[in-house]
Amino acid sequence: MLETIFIDIANWIRNLLGSAGVPALWNDTVMMLVKLTAIIVFILINALWLVYMERKVAGYMQARIGPNRVGPKGLLQTTADIGKLISKEIIIPKNVDKILFLLAPVLIFVPPLTIFSVIPFGKNMMAIDLNIGLFFVFAIASLSTLIFWIGGWSSYNKYSLLGSMRVISQMVSYELPMMLALLGVIMIVGSLNLSEIILAQESAWFIISQPIAFLIFFIAAVAECNRVPFDLMEGESEIIAGPYTEYSGMGFAMFFLAEYANIMIASAMTTVLFLGGWLAPFGLTFIPSWLWFFVKMYVVIFVFMWLRWTYPRVRIDQLLGFGWKVLVPLSLANIFVTGIGMYIYRALGW
């Protein structure tokens, strides 16, 4: 009952529309819209509350309380913040490329929202079951580089431009080890379908059989999300706020919330690829599969925040050097070792 709650809701809506005499094509269209709306609401609400979580985690790490005035335990603090940001005037500086300047904060949410539609968040639960889901995720994720760059470039500000150049070089450099690291997982599973990748972890999560790939993937994910210690693009001690420098009010808030949406995507992908997705560990199947998925996802999100408040920022040359000289060779070596290991296992007849 609790296990299949989302499937039951979907079937209920489908039956309701079917009994009302809606043709099958429109029925599917409505179902897709319902799913996409659910994803949008889920991501926006989460992005809002993750800001609160981040501030609470920061407070805990620095031995202070964090937001605690607005609402019970400060839970409404970020809602109030968004209310303030919405009511602020949208300031467009004189020399900016107006259309692109306004387009960038709108478009920045498209990649995370699109990606979430293929992520399986429970047994047989996903908006779209794509056969090459993993590929789709990376294709769409690579687009967000372009959108960050639009924001920085259209501002006509030297700090924005520096920040957006950093975004491009950083994201391009870390996409490579990320994909190469995942080749190990894909070789073992033999499929790009995210559900099949999860099912292949029935006996052992890939964090155990592919620890190097997990480390590379996680480091690259932190870099792709532009989080500390790799938040060079908005290194406030060097370039003010990078691409966001000229943005105020809701434009800034969109970039800010998109950062948390990207963290959610990265955490969800880490969960799917290395932590067994919705599979219950130790046979604790009485807890519904989707709950397991979200528990694992929030644990990974917590690790993201833990990293942020623990490590200092690195330099841009250190960042790029680390990506090209350490992560890329290491991920190439991981592919070879995985291939040899698979042959040995096959020779042993496992």
Partner: peptide, 25 residues
């Protein structure tokens, strides 16, 4: 052709455009 569509986004929109931007900058 889902596979081709995704390759199109990954290679052309994701990589070729970024390369041109590098050139411009």
């Amino acid at each position: 052709a889902v596979y081709l569509a995704i390759i199109q986004v990954l290679i052309y929109a994701g990589a070729v455009c970024i390369m041109i931007i590098f050139g411009i900058m």
